[in-house]
Nucleic acid binder design. Sequence first.
DNA 1: AACATGTGTCAGTAAATTCTTACATGTGTC
DNA 2: GACACATGTAAGAATTTACTGACACATGTT
Lengths: 105, 105
Amino acid sequence: MSISGDDLLTMLSALASPHRLRIMATLKAEGRSYVSQLARQVGISRPLLHLHLQKLEEAGLVTSQMELSPDGKALNFFAVADFAVELTPDLLVQAAATLSAKSES
Amino acid sequence: MSISGDDLLTMLSALASPHRLRIMATLKAEGRSYVSQLARQVGISRPLLHLHLQKLEEAGLVTSQMELSPDGKALNFFAVADFAVELTPDLLVQAAATLSAKSES
DNA sequence: AACATGTGTCAGTAAATTCTTACATGTGTC
DNA sequence: GACACATGTAAGAATTTACTGACACATGTT
């Protein structure tokens, strides 16, 4: 079985951004990181990072996990998910066939 | 050798659109098609298709070729290019490292 | 000449994203 | 209590992207 057109679209949209590409790379290199720390590492504001992380998580590209630090602070750790999509013309043909009506625009 | 961060970004942005996904699929299924015909096949206006084709061609996903039809009309034929990109976390790490300064936002 | 079909482009609008600023909340420490 | 650091979210501005409609031009046919 393969990826659905809508899922592929969500994934591509999520990755089609310099910020989000850097977020993914930093996160992968770092292993895992929590929001405020990651914001400093990537060099963008926390609210902005939060927005991008939402998109990435919605696409299934990252996972999050709330944890309590030794000193009692709630930290939301993110890590990149495992994925592998072979982007080829044939995949697009197959994916486009399962595009929902909502994606008409 | 692998794909540059900027090129990957261009490619992902080009594919992250329902219309352009359908254009690619139709074009691949059809083999080749000229602008006006493709517009009818996909069901969008010609100026809009023209815009999308520009993005796709700029990303190297399609190629175009002007030809004269038997009755003397200039037809601009498009076809999908051959490409294969394995989308994985590791590729993103490698690609993000070569992101140009322009892509800072 | 008028029509049908092909090409491209530009101006203006509509819509979707992106980003900033500010707020609200919680916990441990000085 | 004030501070430092963590969380999330909401409103509005700024920017980008998408789309429509009209124009200009060319060729073969009626």
